[in-house]
Computed example of a mutant assay.
Amino acid sequence: MVNNYELELLYEGKAKKVYKYNNYKLLIEFKDDVTAFNGLKKNNIINKGKINKQISSHFFELLNKKGINTHFVRDYDDKSFIAKWTNLIPLEVIVRNYAAGSFCKRYGVKKGYKFEFPLVEFSLKNDELGDPMITSEAILLLKLTSEEILNEIISISKKVNEILSRYLAEVGIILVDFKLEFGLSKEDNQLLLIDEISPDTCRFWDAHTMESFDKDVYREDKGDLITAYTEILGRLKI
C-alpha cells in the first residue's frame, strides 16, 4: 500500500488519496470506495480503484499524445500514478453530449436527448456547498480564474470531448457526459487537465442498447459495478 512508501498524505477524498512525491509531483492512489448522492450512499468494492486507475491512465496517455497537456506522468503501481503537482482551479467542468442525470432533473428533459452541440457547464468545487452550478460571469466576478484561462479551459474541454467521443465510438460506446478538473502546474504555471477520467466521472452508454457502463449502475442499482467497469477495460483492450 501507498502508506508503506512513507509519503506525506496531502489530501483524502471520496475516491482518491493524494500524496507528496517530491516538490513538483504527486502520487495519486485510487480507492475502492464508491459514493453517490453527495456521500449519502457509500460502499467499498474490491478492484474498483484499480480499474479506475487503469482507465484514467489510458485516457490521459491518449490525450497527452493528442496534444492535450495533462498532469499524468507515469503509472506507479496497480492503483496509483505519478502526476504533476498543480494549484487547483476550484471548478468542475461538465461537458454534455446527451441529456442525463442532473440536467434532466433541472430542465425536465427526457434522458437520452441528443444535443445539437456539446454543452459546457461549470460547478463550484466545494463539498460543503454541494458543488453548486456557477456561470462564467460569476466565475470571473469571484476571481476563481482569469478570463483568458477560463476561455482556454472551455477550448480544451471541447477538444477532449471530440477526441474521446471519436475514440469511444470506435468501440461502440457513447460518451454521454463527463467531468473535468484543471490546475496550474506548481513548476511552471502551465494549465493542465488533472484529476481522473473514469467511469466514476463519465457516463458511458452502449451505442446499441444504451446500457450504462458507469457509476449510474451503482446510483440506480442496475447491476454489478465491477462488471460494468470491466466492460470498458475490455472494449478499450487495456
Rank of each mutant, 00 (worst) to 15 (best):
K84E: 15
P132A: 11
F204K: 01
Q54Y: 03
D214L: 00
L225S: 02
V93A: 04
K48E: 07
S146V: 10
K222H: 10
S80Q: 06
T230A: 11
I154V: 15
I55A: 03
S102H: 14
I45V: 15
T209C: 13
S157K: 05
E148W: 02
D214P: 01
H71F: 10
P132T: 14
E12P: 05
N161E: 09
I46M: 11
I28V: 15
N44P: 00
N161V: 14
F81R: 00
L88D: 11
D221Q: 05
G223F: 07
L124D: 07
M133K: 15
I139W: 05
E152S: 13
G112P: 06
K31S: 13
R219C: 06
Y5D: 15
D216Y: 09
G183I: 02
P90C: 12
L27H: 02
E148L: 10
W205H: 04
A15W: 00
D206V: 10
V2I: 15
L141P: 00
S185H: 04
I156T: 12
F178A: 05
V34W: 00
A99W: 01
H58N: 14
T230Y: 03
A228L: 01
I134K: 03
L129Y: 08
L175Y: 02
F72R: 02
V18R: 05
G223H: 04
K105I: 07
R166P: 00
R96C: 08
E137D: 15
S185W: 04
V176H: 02
T86L: 03
S155C: 10
D195H: 08
V160F: 06
H208G: 06
F59C: 06
K111C: 09
L192T: 03
A169I: 06
R166V: 00
